[in-house]
Design a protein around this nucleic acid. Structure first.
Lengths: 104, 104
DNA sequence: TTTATATGAAACCTTTTGGTATTACGTCAA
DNA sequence: TTGACGTAATACCAAAAGGTTTCATATAAA
């Protein structure tokens, strides 16, 4: 699996913000663009990069394009991070409890 | 905490490779450079980016600079990833077992 | 059918990035 | 002290990245 496009997609703050937004709700390009101080064309470029990185899926609905967060796209990043066992070992409990707390 | 420099540092494949190398052994700039087909100056730039991202620490030892992996530098990335609870929920068991297996 | 809307796509611009080459500086060893 | 060595710093270059503008196309609505 080619992880480079995924890491590249996450390297930009705007794209990370888009992902956080899409995490809770699917959105059209125009809807995403409303949240940023840039043109729709620029936002569309970011969405393309996110799609190339496998982090979102895009489906057509009439003349609109529905962008949705794709959790599975995170896999390459997670796989890479598992190289750092000691780090994860220290952090795993914190992470787990954070998730469990959030699931309350 | 400013996470942008950390995400940026991880966006380049050469820098990720350097991190994997430093994970098991501290190295001077020249030692790191031996493993890549580029000049020491280029490698040094990558090390500077990694340092800016908090992913490595650098200490002087005579005329040499010892570069060491800094696990704590991963924190911003991990913190950001915890936004995606559902994803982590699906993957947590796999990750945990992978780590436990590796610790054998 | 006309017209407005949502997106796609290309051309263009500026800044950043990844790389080289060159030069200077501090340190170790003979 | 005199080189040799490891690194720092600078100038420079090509390509990629992030953005805008403009125009074309497809669909929705009047």
């Amino acid at each position: 699996m080619e992880s480079q496009p995924t890491f590249r997609a996450l390297a930009d703050a705007t794209r990370r913000d888009i992902l956080v937004m899409l995490r809770s709700k699917e959105m059209t390009i125009a809807e995403v663009a409303e949240n940023f101080d840039m043109t729709r064309a620029a936002v569309k470029k970011h969405l393309t990069v996110l799609s190339d990185g496998g982090l979102i899926t895009v489906r057509a609905q009439g003349r609109e394009r529905i962008n949705a967060f794709n959790p599975a796209g995170m896999a390459p990043v997670l796989d890479w991070l598992t190289f750092f066992d000691a780090f994860w070992d220290d952090r795993l409990n914190d992470l787990k409890s954070a998730i469990e707390k959030d699931a309350t």
